[in-house]
């Protein structure tokens, strides 16, 4: 469903952020992306969203190819992806409810269907009782739950998370991670970039892809690796 084939991404000023990266994430998989700061984790997630295109190689996501992608196809791809960031990125002038509804409104969901769907999503992330709160009235963990509910609004095939627990303490982070596990258990793939090696070690059944200076140095799945050395 997500397939990187010899993907190199270089920036004019900072050089190669990714170096001949290949991997294949299948439907329903749970994948940790790990590596030092600057290893290229966020770059991979941006390439999956096709917010950027690879300098070399090919990114394929759910039938879309970076080689054939036209700008007007991008919205269609984005609707199949849910994205969560470390810093939540909620709209401050909207309630939790409205933040989730926003994702549905702007992708043309039917009006009558929005409100019940938002209700279900808020319940799913365990925040039904805080639906009317504004982001600043919520804790970090609660904000991230709202962000997760928004990411799930369009029923994505994959949930992409860039250090979703980075700003949260242990308990709150654990709660968010449990949520991801539940979501994954219902068939949605999850790709989560994280620094938290403890968390990764505690869940050995999930796949780990480790990056170092833009190259894949470890992939726990028996998938084709990058041919080059680390």
């Amino acid at each position: 469903m997500i397939k990187f084939t010899n993907v190199t991404k270089s920036y004019p000023r900072s050089g190669a952020a990714l170096d001949r990266v290949s991997f294949h994430v299948r439907k329903g998989e749970f994948v940790f992306l790990t590596g030092h700061s600057g290893a290229g984790k966020s770059t991979i997630l941006r390439l999956v969203q096709m917010a950027e295109s690879p300098t070399e190689g090919e990114v394929r996501v759910s039938g879309f190819s970076s080689r054939l992608m036209r700008p007007r196809d991008i919205p269609q791809l984005r609707r199949r992806l849910g994205v969560v960031f470390q810093e939540y990125r909620l709209l401050r002038d909207r309630t939790a409810d409205e933040n989730v509804a926003f994702a549905l409104e702007v992708t043309g969901a039917k009006r009558q269907s929005i409100s019940p769907r938002v209700g279900r999503l808020m319940a799913q992330v365990g925040l039904a009782h805080k639906a009317r709160a504004y982001p600043e009235e919520l804790s970090g963990g609660e904000r991230q739950r709202v962000a997760v509910a928004r990411a799930l609004a369009n029923d994505p095939l994959v949930l992409l998370a860039d250090e979703p627990t980075g700003n949260l303490d242990g308990w709150a982070g654990e709660g968010i991670f449990k949520l991801f596990q539940d979501i994954n258990a219902m068939g949605t793939s999850v790709v989560m970039a994280t620094h938290d090696l403890d968390l990764v070690r505690r869940h050995p059944k999930y796949r780990v892809i480790e990056l170092n200076q833009g190259a894949v140095v470890f992939d726990s799945a028996a998938e084709p690796r990058t041919s080059g050395s680390a």
């Binding site: 700008p71 007007r72 919205p75 269609q76 791809l77 984005r78 992806l81 990125r89 926003f102 609004a153």
Partner: peptide
Amino acid sequence: DEISIMRLVGATDGFI
């Protein structure tokens, strides 16, 4: 902010 979130969740350019 709204615009970048609209793009994130897949709103079309026309809609934006």
